[in-house]
Write a protein that binds this DNA or RNA. Structure first.
Lengths: 353, 353
DNA sequence: CGCACCCCTGCGCATTTGCTCATGAGATTC
DNA sequence: GAATCTCATGAGCAAATGCGCAGGGGTGCG
């Protein structure tokens, strides 16, 4: 009599219901969410059982009577970038992205040590949060990891071992800062430091023989199995650390450029899409391979400065980082890049330089 | 060095904090409230302990990062009146107010039985929700309670006893409906019915002697101690039930009018401010006194129709009802009344008629 | 009119959550 | 430079919450 239409079961996804039923749901939700009563108190207040009160609250939610929104307060809109971080995580499949408010600009003559300090603090905070006492931490040398080491607090986190992922022994006077990072992190994290006492690059035969060394092979093994890895990226440029430290010469730089390399991690270069760029150089490199980095469950990429943008993008596309710490400028640049399609290997000449 | 100002304790109500601390709080709140993760999952996702995850969520709330609002969906704005109900509760100190969407208009020639049915359903719903199996339910006779009795479902609620609060025996043929209400409610609620086998009004001496009767006194006692009472209000008018049923004559109506009476419950009249209006008539009335009604922890006033507005207002001001069921027109009228000051006894001539 | 189905309700338990205490590191003050 | 204070963290526990189950009444179909 009241229902002429054959609708025994409402297929309408529960979006509509009797208004009288929803009156109580609305009331329960108000008391629960707005007045902060417990469900038992709501039940008492409404004269229903506790279970029913819970159902009413649940119904209120399913019917859209309750709207919960998490927003960044206006007074720290400039410091927090939850939306950008979330976009980065979604875009590159990251576990966590941390975007600091500063804009690292390494092209101009300005001193970006302050910016790097901010970046370092953020990365150190992330690192100490992710580190477990039984973990092994691997790191590459470079200005980014130095900044992290400087910012790392003591007592907050602990790990078992900290291991060097790429060789740093040099014939020149160039300071890689490896000792500082290794020493400081080991101290602050109360971890046992493990060195990789080799150069970064050597002849292929030398590298092959070094890898058979019991100590070196153990270190490499330890690095490959590290629970957490932390590293920056190097650009393919004459102003990058590897060139300034005489690890690479101009000819190699040109070769890498022609191969489409956009960046490196631990001296191992990759292209725009993250694929390894110079297999021959790979065999001459003493560091954890990119494949091992990609296999690590927790890898933190610290990237600051415009010169590192392309390199960071390549690293992210290669899946070498599960976590990213970068400045806002880098984050925006990364998101401006093709939001969907990753390159299918090879490189696009129009993207060069 | 970093803090020259003497601010050991921040007296600023925790509205501001380090942005970096809030970053995690924001993240935790997002995962918890928006993504629906449990706090343990949030903790795992963020690399913190479960306790810390809980603290982060709590901090996000205290800092206003989370905003929860309970709103009436637009498609039932016309049926629900949560704001009006809340205003009524606040204004008159009610436990609960139920406002139904219909507009009972008893001045015109329209049939308002449908409106009364809606009102009755709402009141019955409220009543069955509030009733406990061990409770005694008291009621007065009248069209409102008849509507409630008609709407009461079976099996939903139970109570021990249902007792008549005001005498209904008449010498005329007027049907009060008391028997119907008593019988139907007793059946549906599986309660034991208790009659008050007396007229509503009698001589003072008669009333006094009736009150000494063991059966009658027990009924009155039972009514006074009822856990829940349900009643309508009568207006001071020639179109009201008490006059039509020949319980009152024109002279008495005028007397009551002059005394400032605006309404009655169980034949006992009160003024605009709720104070008893005719002490002499009180001694001639066989019903639960207003003071007993005011003392009852759960009293449901069912009011529909424009003619009852003033009476309902007086009843609410007298504190005779802890719960109110009325139509939207009545609710709006009640709220349009002085929102703050209650009258200090006596009556205002300008308010009459 | 009987029967089966289904929704609603209340009960008991596993999980989740908020809270308190004790511990330790950093900051402040004398 | 040392004592103390404050704050944050982790463990444990009690309260609170969600979810299963079973029972009963209403509804629709036969």
């Amino acid at each position: 009599m009241t229902k002429p239409s054959p609708v025994p079961k409402a297929p309408d996804g529960d979006t509509t219901a009797a208004p009288e039923d929803l009156r109580l749901a609305l009331r329960a939700a108000t008391l629960y969410y707005l007045d902060g009563l417990t469900q038992a108190q709501v039940a008492d207040r409404l004269g229903v059982s506790r279970a029913t009160a819970g159902r009413l609250v649940a119904r209120a939610r399913t019917h859209g009577l309750v709207r919960i929104e998490v927003t960044t307060p206006p007074h720290l809109r400039d410091d927090l970038h939850a939306d950008i971080e979330h976009a980065l995580e979604k875009r590159f499949g990251l576990t966590e992205a941390v975007v600091v408010g500063v804009r690292v600009d390494d092209r101009g003559p300005v001193d970006n040590s302050a910016s790097f300090a901010v970046l370092g603090r953020a990365a150190a905070s992330l690192l100490t949060r992710r580190l477990r006492p039984a973990d092994t931490l691997g790191f590459t040398w470079g200005p980014e990891t130095i900044a992290v080491a400087q910012a790392i607090p003591s007592g907050v986190a602990t790990c078992k071992t900290i291991v060097q992922l790429d060789g740093s022994v040099t014939t020149s006077t160039y300071q890689t800062g490896t000792e500082y990072v290794l020493g400081r992190c080991a101290e602050q994290l109360q971890a046992q430091p493990v060195r990789l006492p080799t150069p970064l690059y050597a002849d292929a035969t030398t590298v092959a023989s070094m890898r058979t060394d019991s100590v070196i092979s153990r270190t490499l093994e330890l690095g490959s199995r590290a629970d957490v890895m932390m590293f920056g990226v190097g650009a393919v440029s004459s102003s990058t650390t590897l060139f300034e430290g005489s690890f690479l010469d101009t000819a190699m730089l040109d070769t890498l450029d022609e191969l489409g390399a956009v960046g490196e991690i631990g001296g191992r270069f990759f292209r725009e899409d993250g694929t390894p760029a110079h297999v021959e150089l790979e065999s001459r490199t003493m560091s954890t391979p990119l494949s091992e980095i990609a296999a690590c469950p927790s890898t933190i990429l610290v990237a600051g400065g415009a010169s590192k943008h392309r390199a960071a993008h390549g690293a992210l596309c290669g899946g070498y980082a599960t976590m990213l710490v970068c400045d806002i400028a880098c984050a925006e640049w990364l998101l401006d890049r093709s939001p969907t399609h990753p390159h299918d290997s090879g490189f696009d000449p129009t993207e060069m330089r």
